[in-house]
Design a protein around this nucleic acid. Structure first.
Length: 711
DNA sequence: GAGCCTCGAGTTCC
DNA sequence: CTCGAGGCTC
């Protein structure tokens, strides 16, 4: 592998090897530079290695290594913890807020699995510990690394701190090659009270609740402080394993828990095996009754389908498993005064009313604001300034106004009048489309609030992910005229000190923070196409749609050309209501699964605006936008094909079959047309099978389909 | 045409 | 996390 091999020519395997090589090289040079102050190569050569690494990672986001140098760039100087990419993402859970939701969950298992649905009714009920999720990685039975959950795919390396918990075994008895266990770190209520007393005596800050105390303790940069804090652990799940879960952990969740306990991990003794929804509800009631007496906080119960093979079949919906759900205890509520209602402007111009509340403690946190969503919500709940209101934290996180206590309403109170103009200086009129819930500022690109929000979106985590550039700084740069559009971000350093004093001389900035910011921006000149599209902030185009477009078109050039063509057609036919009436390019765009008329129109609207095109062009010139990995065709004979299922399938249900087909890169359609590649015919097939024959579409039996799917 | 499901866009506090 | 809207399925 040579230094010069073009990134575009790398295949998956070569890229993986190259990333490994670069990680080693960069680590080697980092050590020489930082620890021995004796670099072997020039800064320029070093930067070239780092940029090559970034370019490959941008092109193959799935291959980014846990120890990727890009997560450590500026490593030793950067404050805080190193980033760790989880080999298997740490997922979130769907929520059930009552018995009804829970019954629906059990019914869904039944629906999804068909004849095996009954077997899935056996679940493990585990107390949901209110702490911090962590992942512990063991190699050959030795504890190697511990990480926080972070955003689910990337957390922080807290190995040293976790080592200080005596409940974290350093060495396991049964030495698996690779075992990643997941659990919750928490602090007992007793220990929390004692800690707060000590803190108060020492004149240090006291914590609001055990969860915050645990979080604060775990995130100490000095592991000695963590060691002095009485943290505890419960283990309940796993991530990456060196072999099939069934072999390593057993056939069921229940077996897995006891296997984990046998290896020396603390598991919760209140977990119960339940034979169905009624037993699950009973487990919930009994935990709710026990809750106050427990020495640790729990915020609900988690139910998991017991059989691991069924878990695997159920799979995931976006980021939550279909085989588990959290049943939350009712949220704690509090009363307070609603002192004011103010209006916030989002990046799309949406005006959101926000309540300013007299600060009140809810669920251990002081709350002073809560979103009111929109005008209708205020009318529906008849919320007025000056009211006493009941607030709670939805899912124990986001504060919300539940209702008004009308008996305590001041005699002179007036209904809230939604503003007719944007709160920005331009006072643009507020528009609200018929049938729409949101009111929008009509100022569009001129509204300064929208511009700042667009920039914030551009640097946000899912987009360019530029660290150290928060709202405050963006607003300051914007107000001084330094940063008015996204492309100007990449000329910030070159323009530094030209018209204004250099950044390092600004208040709150220094040599290092300015350098760090410029480095963070430079590091993102190489970017994946999907992030780039998402960053543009086109309405209706979020992360999922951006990814879809990137994978569909592959390159920036192809995407740009396709949307340009569609835009021209749309501009010529603004009145058309059917994609086909607009033109071929536009119709092709609408043909993409998940893209309808409305999303296509937003893409065109963006491409019609000269200002957007100018920014787009400037960005394209300043950046290296990596081609997207087009779904590996050839790996499955079903990749890129369109399938239709008809009749009753014996081995799996319709939705299961659909999920399976899609995971192999196929598209599942509802009706047979000449563009259908295969029709899978189950028992009692009706007209679709006949139509397939008539059109000459290949017909597959269920067995043939399973064969194809597993090859 | 109705009902599901997914996605986008909004927000809070640490 | 929640809501509303868009898109797909039946």
């Amino acid at each position: 592998m040579s230094e010069t091999a073009a990134v575009e020519n790398l295949d998956q395997a070569a890229a993986e090897a190259e990333l490994e090589r670069l990680a080693g090289l960069i680590r080697h040079h980092d050590q020489l530079y930082h620890q021995k102050a004796a670099p072997e190569i020039s800064d320029g050569d070093y930067d070239a290695l780092v940029r090559r690494n970034q370019a490959i990672e941008a092109r193959f986001p799935d291959l980014v290594r846990a120890d990727s140098p890009s997560t450590r760039v500026g490593g030793p100087v950067a404050p805080g913890f190193a980033k760790v990419r989880h080999a298997v993402p740490m997922l979130s859970l769907g929520n059930a807020f009552g018995a009804e939701d829970l019954r629906e969950f059990f019914a869904r298992l039944e629906r999804f699995l068909g004849k095996d649905g009954a077997a899935a009714q056996e679940v493990v009920a585990e107390p949901k510990i209110d702490g911090l999720s962590v992942s512990l990685r063991y190699e050959q039975g030795r504890f190697q690394r511990g990480a926080t959950r972070g955003d689910g795919s990337e957390g922080e390396d807290i190995t040293a701190n976790l080592l200080s918990l005596d409940q974290v075994p350093a060495q396991l008895e049964g030495a698996q090659e690779l075992l990643e266990v997941r659990g919750e770190v928490y602090m007992t209520k007793t220990a929390f009270k004692a800690l707060n007393e000590r803190q108060a005596e020492a004149g240090q800050k006291v914590f609001a609740n055990p969860r915050n105390a645990a979080a604060g303790s775990l995130r100490q940069l000095d592991p000695k402080i963590t060691a002095a804090r009485p943290l505890r652990l419960f283990v309940y799940a796993w991530g990456a394993l060196s072999g099939p879960a069934e072999e390593i952990l057993g056939a069921t969740q229940w077996d897995a828990l006891s296997r984990l306990a046998a290896w020396g991990f603390p598991t919760n003794e209140r977990s119960r095996l339940c034979g169905g929804v009624e037993e699950a509800l009973a487990a919930y009631e009994s935990l709710a009754a026990e809750r106050a007496a427990l020495d640790y906080d729990i915020d609900g119960v988690v139910y998991k389908v017991n059989r691991l093979d069924l878990q695997a079949r159920l799979g995931f919906v976006s980021r939550a498993p279909r085989w588990a759900i959290a049943h939350k205890f009712p949220a704690e509520q509090a009363e307070t005064t609603l002192e004011d209602i103010f209006i916030q402007v989002g990046r799309t111009g949406a005006l959101t009313p926000v309540a300013a509340l007299a600060p009140v403690t809810v669920g251990g946190v002081v709350v002073s604001r809560a979103t009111l969503h929109n005008e209708d919500e205020i009318i529906r709940k008849d919320i007025r300034v000056g009211d006493q209101v009941v607030v709670q934290r939805a899912g124990d996180v986001i504060p919300q106004v539940v209702r008004v206590i009308e008996a305590q309403r001041p005699a002179d109170s007036q209904p809230f009048v939604f503003p007719k103009t944007c709160p920005c200086d331009l006072e643009s009129p507020v528009l609200r489309d018929a049938g729409e819930a949101v009111a929008r500022c009509s100022g569009e690109l001129a509204c300064p609030f929208q511009q700042v929000e667009k920039l914030r979106h551009f640097v946000s985590r899912g987009a360019f992910d530029i660290e150290g550039l928060g709202e405050k700084h963006i607003k300051a740069f914007f107000d001084k005229g330094l940063l008015r559009s996204a492309d100007q971000l990449f000329t910030l350093q070159a323009r530094d000190g030209q018209d204004l004093p250099p950044l390092k001389e600004w208040e709150g900035w220094g040599e290092r923070s300015a350098q760090n910011l410029f480095a963070a921006i430079e590091a993102r000149r190489a970017i994946a196409l999907e992030r780039f599209i998402y960053a543009l902030g086109i309405r209706q185009v979020g992360e999922a749609t951006a990814k879809l477009l990137a994978r569909r078109y592959g390159s920036l050039k192809a995407w740009h050309a396709a949307i340009t063509a569609a835009t021209e057609e749309r501009t010529a036919a603004p009145e058309a209501t059917k994609p086909a009436e607009v033109g071929e390019a536009f119709a092709t765009l609408c043909d993409i699964d998940q893209i309808g008329l409305s999303v296509a129109d937003e893409l065109c609207r963006f491409f019609r605006e000269p200002h957007n095109l100018a920014v787009l062009e400037a960005l394209e010139g300043a950046l290296e936008i990596a081609d997207a990995e087009v779904p590996k065709s050839g790996s499955s004979p079903l990749a890129g094909k369109t399938l239709v299922f008809t009749g009753t399938l014996e081995q799996m249900t319709r939705s299961e079959a659909k999920a399976r087909a899609e995971s192999l890169g196929a598209k599942v359609a509802g009706s047979v047309s000449k563009r259908t590649d295969f029709v899978v015919v189950g028992a009692d097939a009706g007209s679709k099978a006949a139509k397939a024959e008539a059109l000459g579409v290949t017909v597959l039996s269920e067995a043939e389909w399973l064969d194809l799917a597993s090859s």
